[in-house]
Structure formats: structure tokens, C-alpha cells
Design a protein around this nucleic acid. Structure first.
Lengths: 192, 192
DNA sequence: CCACTCCTGTACCAAGTGGTACGTGTACCG
DNA sequence: CGGTACACGTACCACTTGGTACAGGAGTGG
């Protein structure tokens, strides 16, 4: 059982990596920025890939806690649910972590070792959550899955847009157009 | 000025990179795979970054030609437009290039040199196209921009999903749910 | 023949990489 | 006190990296 020093080190590592990206990552530079030696990173994480794995896990953990923290009002319309999700994610303070998420996502798609675990629950876990929530309102599971999938795509797609353009107003408007469509009489279109 | 040898080399480079990703790219390995020496890549592209720039340009070029090739029927509903776009992009033959696109996107978000040019027109050019098309149907520019933004986000978000999960049926259904919402009586909701 | 341009390969370089060997300090526990 | 486990640093290693120097080879035009 490794000490708790590691945990504190990891969070500082994630912070640094969120700023500098993971593509041009070097243990030595990272260690220097953290005021230690690259030997320590190897000591605590075994290898560079081991460190990467831990970073990916941490990012996943944060996603999951963000997901759990959504505290949907089960009675609220889907429109309100997606609005609150967007409100939470679009704030500039999270941009570095979202950039990191998409960078890791891209590397994972290419099979980069250590990152591929990201792909496991990156979609499914969100769908499952929504199925559960929707069941409370009597929505069939298949329909809930499809709409969760769509909502997730909208949010991720608009985040990609926002991170590239910085256009908060434009992306806000697009999300609002999407949310509004759920209030305009078709809360649950047929699944196909 | 450089000969046409370069052009042919570039397309082979892009092909290889689409398969192997750009993250773990090394001039020597790439050259070996291409049956030449890394010296040649430097000769034709000046440097590794120069090669990357060219690859990014090539990807942009393909995106643009895909965009131009969409040949929308101006009279057709937006639902049909987005369906045809998805039908074109979701085919497995394009997956390697889309993986590469998202990998480069991620690197560009982190400011990786040589890739940042990707971000320039990655959103705007699509929006402009849609504004132009929508003008023909009397749709105000602002509304057209917002809905183009949303549609682009849906497609990119679902592509991320598809590349991670491989679930063609699931993503097809989600896109269909989105497209159908345009046929259910709200072709042009207010922009905000 | 020469000269010139384009193209390609071999050999080499300095720099940086991840990883290891080894020694040290520090704290807790007997 | 001694021992032992954790934490940490320095020096080093083999290897790979992007880039360069240099030497041609193939074709063309004079």
C-alpha cells in the first residue's frame, strides 16, 4: 500500500498536465515543474505509462462525480436536465480539463497505450444513468438510451466547438435551440 | 515549386498516419513504413512540424471537399440535409481519417505546434455554408448559424460516440431522433 | 562532354528520452 | 540504541529522436 504522498502528487500532476497537455509530456519536465525529480514519478507510478493510466483514471473519476453531482430533479423535463448539464460544463474554469479530456479521447481512439481505458464507459455510463432516471417517468429504456445518446453528443459536440472558438454566446444559443425542441411538444419522439 | 513527387508522398503519409496516429509519430518509423529514409521526409517537408502542417492542411482540404460534395437540395428540409451528412460520414471506411481528425483536434486544443491551424475554420466554415443555403429559403442568418452549430455538434458528438463504441445502430437511432424533431412541426424554432 | 536541378541514401551528431543502480535521509517501532 | 520501510536525489545507461553533412544518381539542356 503506497503512502498518501502519491495521491497528493497525482492531483498536482493532473493539474500540470491539464495545462500543458499530454502529448508533449516528458517525465523530466513534469518533475521539474513540480519541484521534484523524474525519479520520483517513476518511483510512485512505476513507469510513464503507469502515470498516464492513473491520470486517465482520475479524469474518469471526475467525470463520474460530475455525473453523480447532477442531481436531476426526476420530475423536471429533459430540457431542463440538459440545460443544467451544459451550465455546469461550459464554465471556463473547466476548460483545461475538458481540453485534456478530448486530447486523451483522441489518443485513446488511436489506441495509445494507457489511455484506451477511457473509452470503456465514456458513453455507456451516461446512457445507463439516463435510462435509470427516465424509468422513473415511465419512459421505455430504448427511447431513453437513444435520447441520452443524442444529448451527450450535443453536449460533447458543443464543447468541442466552444473550446475551439471560445464563442460562449453562440454555443449557448445552439444548446438552447436543442433544449427548446424538447419543450415544443415532442418530449419523447419515437425511438426510430 | 517542389516537384509532384512530394504530393504523392504526402498522400501516402496521410494514409499511414491515419492508421497509426500522429501521437507516436517518428520520422524514421514512418519513412521505414513508406520504404524510404527519414531524410526524404525532411527534404520534402523541411521538418517534422512542416510535415505535420501539411498533413493538417490535407485533412482540412478533405473536410472542405466533403462539405462541398454534400450537394444539398436547397429545397429539401434540414432533416434530410443532416441525414445525408451523417450517412456520408458514418461509414467505416472513413473511420481512420475521423480518428485522425479528432486526434489532431485534441492536440490543436492543447496548442501543439503545427496543428493549431485546424481550429481556424473547423466550425465557422460549416456555419457560413449553412447560412448561405438557408438564405435561399428565407431563413434569417442568425437562426441558420445557430442551427448549423447545433447540427454540427450533433454530428461530431455522435462521431465521437461511434468511434469509441462502434455502435452504428445506436448512433443511427440517435441521429434519426434528432432529424425527426425537425419534421415534427418546428423546422425553425426561434434562435433564442 | 559539362552543368544543373531534383531526388535519395548513408553516416553522423547533439539532445533528450524512459528507466535503473546506488546511496542517503528520515521517521516510526522494537 | 538498531532496524526497517518509505521517500527522495544523483549519476548513469542504452536508445531514439529530429536534423545535418556529404556523396552521389538520374534526367535534362547546352
Amino acid at each position: 500500500m503506497p503512502g498518501q504522498v502519491r495521491e497528493e502528487l497525482l492531483s498536482r500532476v493532473v493539474e500540470r498536465i491539464a495545462e500543458q497537455g499530454v502529448g508533449a509530456l516528458s517525465l523530466r519536465r513534469l518533475a521539474a515543474d513540480l519541484g521534484t525529480s523524474h525519479r520520483m514519478l517513476i518511483y510512485h507510478f512505476g513507469s510513464k505509462e503507469g502515470l498516464l493510466v492513473e491520470v486517465v483514471r482520475e479524469i474518469e473519476r471526475r467525470q463520474r462525480s460530475a455525473l453523480a453531482g447532477l442531481e436531476f430533479d426526476p420530475a423536471s423535463a429533459p430540457a431542463e436536465a440538459i440545460r443544467s448539464m451544459w451550465r455546469r460544463l461550459a464554465v471556463p474554469a473547466l476548460w483545461p480539463y475538458e481540453r485534456l479530456f478530448f486530447e486523451l479521447y483522441g489518443q485513446a481512439l488511436q489506441g495509445h497505450p494507457g489511455t484506451t481505458a477511457l473509452l470503456e464507459g465514456v458513453v455507456e455510463s451516461w446512457l445507463d444513468l439516463n435510462v435509470e432516471l427516465a424509468a422513473g417517468r415511465g419512459v421505455p429504456a430504448e427511447v431513453a438510451r437513444t435520447h441520452a445518446r443524442l444529448g451527450l453528443a450535443v453536449v460533447r459536440g458543443l464543447l468541442l466547438d466552444l473550446l475551439a472558438t471560445g464563442d460562449r454566446a453562440g454555443t449557448d444559443a445552439a444548446l438552447e435551440a436543442f433544449a427548446a425542441s424538447y419543450e415544443a411538444g415532442l418530449p419523447v419522439p419515437p425511438a426510430r
